[in-house]
Amino acid sequence: MKDKLNIALIIGSTRQARLAPKVAQWLHGVASQRPDMNVELVDLKEFDLPLFDEKASNLWMPSEDARASAWQDKIGEFDGYLVTVGEYNHSMTGALKNAFDQAYVEWGRKPIGFAGYGGVGGARAVEHARNVAVELQMVPVRTAVHIAGGDFYALYQGAKTLPEIEANLLPAAGAMLDELAWWGQATRAARRRDADQAIAAAAAAA
């Protein structure tokens, strides 16, 4: 398929004992089978982001820290996002919240889907992440992957692997990716239209 969507699959945890890379690798394998998107793993651990300490969001002024600018440049490459969301004390990881806060312009008007994990499938953390995404002018898709209950504990304790439990996850993963692709195509077309209109307006005013 021509003009595939470029999707970032963000590994949303940075601690040493994290489960996130296993979840991300599995979801990457599923998403990479689709003909309508290219999916790239983006690991927060590789970006060494400081805690947000800018004078303002980059909606209002450029960031001063080069690490924040590098993060913005990276996420700005993509048409949409998938994010692994571990539930820590009923919310997302601090590293993921900080990564959201370190940009604004680059997130806007793009879809985002979540793969949550925890005792209740990361549901509370995913809901918090969706609220943040809305404030960043993103489009959170309805369906998420939730690795919950016995599946989560078997995976966390090493008793099972993701391929062994994926039958429980694939229906949600497929629906989430379908929604991400639909919104990805729609929002990209709208962003391109807006950019063309801005260029035309600037040319007319010159």
Rank of each mutant, 00 (worst) to 15 (best):
G80C: 03
S91V: 07
V141Y: 05
P111F: 05
Y81Q: 04
P62T: 08
A144S: 15
W71H: 08
Q102V: 05
Y104M: 12
P163S: 09
L51C: 03
E135S: 13
L169P: 03
E166V: 09
A115Q: 06
Q72A: 13
V132W: 02
F114P: 10
G150R: 14
W107E: 02
D101Q: 00
D73F: 04
A129G: 04
V105G: 09
G150S: 14
F100V: 04
E106K: 14
H128K: 11
P111Q: 06
A172W: 06
A154I: 01
E87L: 08
A99L: 01
M138I: 07
A123W: 02
V83M: 13
R109N: 15
F114L: 03
P62M: 06
P62K: 00
Y81I: 07
N168L: 11
E127A: 15
S69V: 14
N131P: 01
N58Y: 03
Q102P: 02
P140H: 09
E135K: 09
A123P: 03
A159P: 00
G122T: 10
Q137N: 14
F78W: 05
T161R: 15
P163W: 02
G119R: 11
L96G: 01
Q137F: 10
A115I: 09
F114S: 05
Y117C: 08
Q102R: 15
D48Q: 14
H90P: 01
A123F: 05
G118Y: 08
D101H: 00
D79S: 00
S63Y: 09
A159Y: 06
L155V: 05
T93H: 06
W107H: 01
L96A: 00
E64F: 00
G94W: 08
I112G: 03
H128N: 15
A167C: 00
V85C: 13
F114M: 09
A144T: 14
G150C: 05
A172V: 00
Y156I: 07
A173E: 06
A154H: 12
K74T: 15
A66L: 09
G122Y: 04
L155M: 14
P62A: 06
R124V: 08
I75Q: 04
